[in-house]
Design a protein around this nucleic acid. Structure first.
Length: 896
RNA sequence: GGAGGCAUAGCUCAGCUGGUUCAGAGCAUCUGCCUUACAAGCAGAGGGUCACAGGUUCGAAUCCUGUUGCCUCCA
């Protein structure tokens, strides 16, 4: 041994060393060539984001897939990049400015964007640097950003294209309004949360006229109350100031006489009519519904139907405006008003009762603000029309042209597609692609790429405007309106020239993402793929789970239960963290993250490291220097492991094909730890101070290399380190681009009985408290000595046995059963004959019972008639084996 | 309210078209070992009426029905 290898594996220096080696050799850079392509586009993280555990899981999986493909000879390309995340980033920039004492409203659009770009240059892309620590084998030369000029241009072109195709329209509609972000949101960006709130029962007095009319009418049947007021129930008492009507069900006997009468809104005494519509549920609340068209989607529809006035009492920040009429509330936040008005109503005697109530409120996915339905002019994509034009969007998923893993996600996808709503794509923000719509002085508009083109388009419509008269739409597009183009735009698929990349790498192979963005992103990429490429964007979608803590809570900053991935890597090494994340995270399942898993990963790395120490530390001599029986025994060991390896490799490939990566990794783990380390290395390891024969050593190194190749996609760093050290490598060689092993033919040698004998002897030693250093003599009673004879050397070595005899007298030995045979062990302590007899009798008893159950089956005519013949044969075999076993046991009894 | 899913060892999960590769794996636990690659280790062991109740079948963890509990998505 030339140099000392440390006893524990220390990943830190090794990881940095190899990552920069990989980068400088450009192993991850891919350009089209004659090989089969393999491509993945990264789900672009927010440009200002930092790496969290979800990213770790997601990107580890992508890296495993990419590295496997690369080693399997494909031209693998994993495209990294970031998303401009309009609302999230803008919110961060606004906050940064506020901390510096600058208000967004005091800035011009241009100045604000200058600050935003500065911020992006400073903090953007940190996350990509962090991914390098994880070992991500992205093609960094291809790093893209959704707001870089060429990608933005694609977004604008796509908008114009869709507009020209009649798939985009502008309309005044009720939208989800985020009062914090001061922008509209799509339905997908609204998260519903359960809240405890109160249901207020509020009196609305009837007008004097109405009261008189009721008194004078013939409605005085017994079930009519002659109240002078109606009672409504609401969870949002502040919105009474925006009420436009009260609505009852026309079939509701309690209120029939009130229809057409008028009531007064408390405090402001606005007269509102009592109208009738079957929409009102008679059994909810009081049966009287206040109608507030400006602040509720359903009320808006109801108001439209009945021609009601829309009274909007909220500002874009969610404060009450002049329309609220009551001085006490104007200019105050809606939640403050809710509290105050409840008190005021109560004092003024308008409150009948207040109940505890559980309901759901929509909140903004990005800012967390409670959503207000708000009537605004927005841009929409007509999704029904879009899907009618592209039926493949649903079909491809349903017929597995695009395969979802796990497959049950298909149902969710279908449900969403079947119930699709139009997509609100305009956002009242500045950070993003500005909508290419141009307005003339009187509100007339055209959609055009530039002001010049807009002038031209207006001219065609017979409007003569100068550029200075035109005003571009203030809004930007939804972030997802750029990310849905990602698999196309990262390969410059919208450009006229330079089509090599898109032709070669599109459609991509795999997409790895979280299930919660199936609608936001996955579905829309599929739409974009068929609309502009006429092809699916990817063939497989792997949905990862959500990373939770041990108590199943989501990892979040506020709970403080999310470890910093970089700290974990620093502690345990990237390989350890990757292994820990993947070892128990089947596709679609949430992963319950616990640091002990990462510890397991680190321990595994250490185990491999020590196997490496052993192999490197061996002294080697030519085969000629060794006895024939030892060489033969080593050959057997080699043959056995070779078989094990190939069997396992076939299974691993099967699992990977099914995207069952955690199961594949578990198999590799056991292959290395149990088969290679615990069995194989122990089998061939020379006794202390002696050498190993050359041919076995060579084979042992080959096995080790193959194991490193198979493990490399999962644990890239340690495998590279060992692979480089196992044998001489040329400059520029790397495991990254080494060929992945293929399943080869093998001779299977069953060491089953030998292994069982070893295990049982060890157990015997253990249970009797005998030191492993004490050697035993054993006698094997069997009719199949060939199952043991060739492996005597192994049995002696691994179980510390001094001599093996076959079918000799074994009086006063301890006995153990191995398969259908009986092995007798000479212990240097007194055998308790009574206890031994009892043990054997128990075994016989069990076998008799077992045989009886087999007999029941075999004597069942229907079983024999219906079951597969080989199954019946198996049952017969079982019976024969049991009989043989009983015979052996009886003999042992006799010899005691 | 609608849709889908899950329930197997203390924990996380495998168990394909029903039948000895059917009750399995890893971790955790327990016992004994510092046996010169590794105590981040070695050698072993114990743990489950496969949620409950029916049904189909010669045979059910597996198929069907219902019940209960949990989760996810949508409204």
């Amino acid at each position: 041994m030339t140099k000392e290898i440390s006893k524990t594996y220390s990943p830190q220096s090794i990881e940095d060393k190899w990552y920069s080696y990989w980068l400088s050799n450009k192993y991850f850079h891919a350009t089209p060539d004659e090989r089969e392509p393999y491509s993945i586009v990264i789900p672009p993280p927010n440009v200002t984001g930092v790496l969290h555990m979800g990213h770790m899981l997601n990107n580890t999986i992508q890296d495993v897939l990419t590295r496997r493909a690369r080693m399997q000879g494909k031209n693998a390309c994993w495209v990294p990049g970031t998303d401009h995340a309009s609302i999230a980033t803008e919110a961060k920039v606004v906050q940064m400015l506020r901390e510096r004492g600058i208000k967004k409203s005091d800035l011009s659009r241009e100045d604000f964007l200058k600050y935003a770009w500065e911020w992006k240059e400073k903090y953007g892309g940190i996350i990509l640097e962090q991914l390098k620590k994880l070992g991500a084998s992205c093609d960094w030369d291809r790093t893209r950003f959704t707001m870089e000029p060429s990608l933005s241009e694609a977004v604008i072109d796509v908008f114009i294209d869709l507009y020209n195709k009649g798939l985009i329209y502008r309309e005044l509609r009720m939208v989800n309004w985020d009062p914090l972000g001061k922008t509209a949101l799509s339905d997908e960006e609204v998260i519903f949360k359960d809240v405890n709130s109160k249901l207020y029962y509020i009196k609305y007095h009837l007008t004097e006229n109405s009261k008189n009319e009721i008194r004078n009418s013939n409605h005085s049947t017994s079930n009519i109350q002659h109240s002078t007021f109606v009672v409504i129930a609401t969870t949002r008492p502040e919105t009474i100031l925006a009420d436009a009507a009260i609505c009852v069900n026309p079939n509701d006997e309690r209120f029939k006489h009130l229809i057409g009468k008028k009531a007064l809104v408390p405090f402001i005494n606005r007269e509102i009519e009592i109208i009738a519509d079957e929409y009102v549920a008679m059994d909810f609340g009081t049966g009287c519904l206040k109608v507030t068209p400006a602040h509720d989607k359903n009320d808006y529809d109801l108001g439209k139907k009945h021609g009601l006035e829309v009274i909007d009492i909220l500002t874009e920040e969610g404060f009450l405006n002049e329309n609220a009429q009551d001085e006490r509330y104007i200019g105050k936040d809606r939640f403050a008003v809710r509290k105050q008005i409840a008190i005021d109503l109560e004092e003024a005697g308008f409150i009948v009762k207040i109940e505890e109530y559980k309901n759901q409120v929509g909140t903004s996915e990005r800012t967390g603000a409670v959503i207000e339905p708000r009537l605004t002019l927005q841009w929409w994509v007509d999704m029904k029309k879009f899907l009618a034009k592209n039926p493949e969007v649903l079909d491809a998923v349903m017929n597995d042209e695009i395969k979802f893993h796990p497959a049950n996600m298909k149902n969710t996808y279908k449900h969403w597609i079947d119930n699709i709503k139009d997509w609100c794509i305009s956002r009242q923000l500045w950070w993003g692609q500005q909508i290419p719509a141009w307005y003339g002085p009187n509100g007339e508009f055209v959609v055009a790429k530039t002001a010049e083109e807009a002038v031209e388009k207006f001219r065609i419509l017979n409007f003569e405007f100068r550029i200075s008269e035109l005003k571009q739409d203030e809004d930007v597009l939804d972030t997802w309106f750029s990310s849905w183009l990602w698999p196309i735009s990262v390969f410059d698929g919208f450009k006229e020239e330079g089509k090599e990349d898109i032709k070669y790498f599109y459609p991509t192979n795999d997409l790895v993402t979280a299930p919660e963005i199936m609608f936001f992103w996955v579905a829309r990429m599929i739409m974009a793929g068929y609309e502009w490429m006429g092809q699916k964007p990817f063939s497989n979608v792997y949905y990862t789970g959500i990373v939770r803590d041990k108590q199943r809570r989501k990892m979040s900053k506020s709970l403080g239960n999310s470890p910093d991935p970089l700290d974990l890597i620093a502690h345990y090494g990237a390989d350890g963290v990757r292994m820990g994340m993947l070892i128990c995270s089947p596709a679609g399942n949430d992963i319950l993250f616990d640091e002990s898993q990462v510890e397991q990963g680190r321990n595994f790395a250490n185990k491999i490291w020590n196997a490496f120490r052993l192999v490197k530390g061996l002294t080697i001599k030519p085969d000629a220097d060794f006895a024939a029986d030892l060489l033969a025994s080593n050959k057997i060991s080699e043959q056995w492991f070779n078989a094990r390896f190939n069997i396992a490799l076939a299974e691993i490939e099967e699992k990977c094909k099914d995207y069952k990566l955690s199961e594949a990794l578990m198999m590799i783990y056991k292959l290395i730890w149990d088969d290679y380390c615990a069995w194989y290395l122990e089998m061939i390891k020379p006794v202390y101070g002696e050498a190993l024969n050359q041919s076995t050593y060579d084979q042992t190194v080959v096995f080790f290399e193959k194991l490193m190749l198979v493990l490399h996609p999962f644990m890239p760093f340690i495998t590279e380190e060992i692979w480089q050290e196992l044998t001489e490598r040329k400059v520029g060689e790397s495991i990254c681009i080494a060929a992945y092993p293929n399943v080869e033919t093998y001779n299977y040698t069953s060491l089953q009985n030998a292994f069982e004998t070893i295990a049982k002897i060890r157990d015997l030693r253990n249970s009797k408290g005998i030191s492993p250093k004490e050697a035993f003599e054993i006698v094997i009673k069997t009719t199949q000595a060939e199952l043991y004879e060739p492996y005597q050397f192994l049995i002696k070595k691994l179980a510390n046995v001094s001599s093996i005899l076959f079918n000799e007298d074994a009086h006063n030995y301890a006995s153990i059963s191995v398969s259908t045979d009986q092995v007798f062990v000479k212990l240097n302590i007194e055998i308790d004959a009574v206890a031994e007899t009892e043990k054997i009798n128990k075994e016989i008893e069990y076998l008799i019972g077992f045989m009886a159950s087999v007999d029941v089956k075999l004597s069942n005519e229907k079983f024999v008639a219906n079951a597969k013949p080989e199954l019946v044969e198996k049952e017969r075999q079982k019976k024969d084996d049991a009989l043989a076993k009983i015979e052996v046991l009886k003999q042992s009894l006799a010899s005691l």
